[in-house]
Design a binder for these strands. Structure first.
Lengths: 206, 206
DNA sequence: TAGATTGTTAATCGATTAACAATC
DNA sequence: TAGATTGTTAATCGATTAACAATC
């Protein structure tokens, strides 16, 4: 048995964490309630309490949740107490944007390596990093024990890169390639394809 | 009553469409079955047939689905028979990547306008487009009847931009800002925050 | 204390799947 | 025809919600 907590519950925890962080850092708040959090996120308070109850009791009757305490607990649950080093594959426009994005900081991730196969990009500096030859990818990932990768390569390379990442131990992959990828059991994969998201919304447009 | 087809079903149709297009264009296939499509996508064949049955009968017993016919039908269902002009707000690294991304073509969308508030970016050429002053945003969107927008601005601007977009008629918004946005009923919103996705996956990492 | 809010239960609601008659 | 596959039904499975005792 791995874990019988539904994946859909796990998927909401980062949303809670993000909003709690916002409450604490942007608004200087100390406490909140499932009702307030739910109202801000468009989620029922019952669902928030039920989700959290899978992991323990983090609140107090009458006063709700101490925000920093709940943040800490969510970080533990999601394995974010240390930063994950992330390998980014693909140094095109999107890789460039990801390399320069500072939104990973303090949220559990650090892009530590960037790879590409284009000789004109290899050696280029991106933010603090140097683009490395993708032929070095396996060696670096193994030596550094990298478990998390982001794929920003064209669709026709994505499956090959995925296979190579998995082969050297990567277990969580976020792919921006507009294609379904096959991964073995035990490897988590998540997709980001703006067109898929837009197409879902245009269904509702007249 | 708007439509009683579950949103989760609508969300899978673009995935089917993408894989069908791949089957036709990359592999030159003419026909497929719910079983084959499901196997390629990690979805049960029953679910695919059930999803499609909400909209009509598109297959034939014994032979399955004619791919190009089903593609055409899915495009009609998702309102992709004409291209939607999209307004992109934010011309930073991510806006740059989106402006140069050619994955929108032939999938129902065309980024037609880019806006930013940074004087050093206004007037800059991105792909085929010129970055316009965001103060011109409302006027352009109204005149061009733009209904779809992509937000690639910092979190602290995202709600204001959203409100302004909605006020001039935008009804579908894809936001890359790492923040929950409030929109009125009748406006669809979709989010892309890589950290949220990574955090869901690290739960499963030891 | 009185008011507020939790964690949890049971009921409701909704989605997925197995199975199969129909039929190409 | 025989084999394959659809569309649909009913059963199963899973997620959400309403309600409330417990208690801060």
């Amino acid at each position: 048995m791995t874990s019988d907590i539904p994946d859909i519950v796990i998927g909401r925890l980062p949303i809670y964490l993000r909003e709690l962080t916002r409450l604490a850092e942007e608004e200087g708040r100390i406490n909140t309630s499932s009702h307030e959090l739910g109202k801000r996120l468009g989620i029922s308070s019952a669902q928030i309490r039920k989700d959290l109850s899978h992991f323990g009791e983090f609140g107090k009757q009458g006063t709700g949740y101490h925000i920093n305490y709940l943040i800490e607990k969510l970080r533990e649950i999601l394995h974010l107490t240390n930063e994950w080093d992330v390998a980014l594959v693909g140094a095109g426009y999107l890789g460039h944007a990801l390399a320069h994005y500072h939104g990973f900081e303090h949220r559990g991730f650090r892009i530590s390596w960037i790879f590409d196969n284009d000789p004109t990009k290899i050696g280029e500096q991106m933010d603090q990093l140097i683009v490395l030859d993708v032929t070095k990818m396996e060696q670096v990932i193994q030596e550094q024990h990298i478990k998390v990768a982001v794929i920003a390569v064209p669709a026709n390379y994505a499956q090959e890169i995925t296979d190579r990442l998995v082969a050297v131990g990567v277990r969580s992959i976020l792919s921006y390639a507009p294609i379904h990828l096959n991964v073995p059991r035990g490897v988590e994969i998540s997709y980001s394809d703006p067109v898929i998201q837009l197409q879902r919304m245009t269904y509702y447009l007249p």
